[in-house]
Amino acid sequence: MRAFLAIVARDLRLGLRQGGDILTLVLFFVIVGTVLPFAIGPDRPQLARLAPAIVWVAALLAQLLSNERLFGSDFEDGSLAILRHAPLPLEMVVGAKMLAHWVLTALPIIAATPVLALMLGMEGETLLRAIGSLVLGTPALVAFGTVGAAVTVGLKRGGLVAPVLVLPLSLPVLIFGTGAMAPMVPGASGQALLLLAALGLVSVALVPFAAAMALRFAGE
């Protein structure tokens, strides 16, 4: 447990010291959400209808952008090889890094959602649902991103490979995430949220094993 907490604390400390990264991520999220309305045009009802999709696409893209640094620097500087000699199984190392990554990337995005809501003319209730669906959905996004980052960690130019791997996996999150915000059928929002939560729990539980296996091969 001490080793687990040490990894979480180190990653958080590193992330907060390089605070510029978090700010860039938040700005990226807000800018993507702001650029789309320009393409759509100044039709407020239409914007409000599209808002869930815009929020989720922006969150997905921002998440993709940040995944590379999950294992990249630890692999480059040799820390990952040494972490394999920690008394902690590699699966737990992955879990610790996922947790820190969620705090550093997903939490700022969730916190910035009200800004986006303002730009998109979202109503209060939709904003609450947006935040709820992001809280439940981002763990799954981080989990899938972790698999992508682990699989591509040894590649010299894995920059674009990971997003290509991760995007199809993230589709269910996108579908249920937007579904939870703007249900097609009245009352279906709760079901979408439940499915989103289930998706998050299953992926967070299983991904450490898959990612650890990928990291073991990356050592070669």
Binding site: R13, D77, G78, A81
Partner: peptide, 9 residues
């Protein structure tokens, strides 16, 4: 070969 020294800390 890589010293596992983390810049930023």
């Amino acid at each position: 070969h890589r010293a596992a020294v983390k810049p930023g800390l």
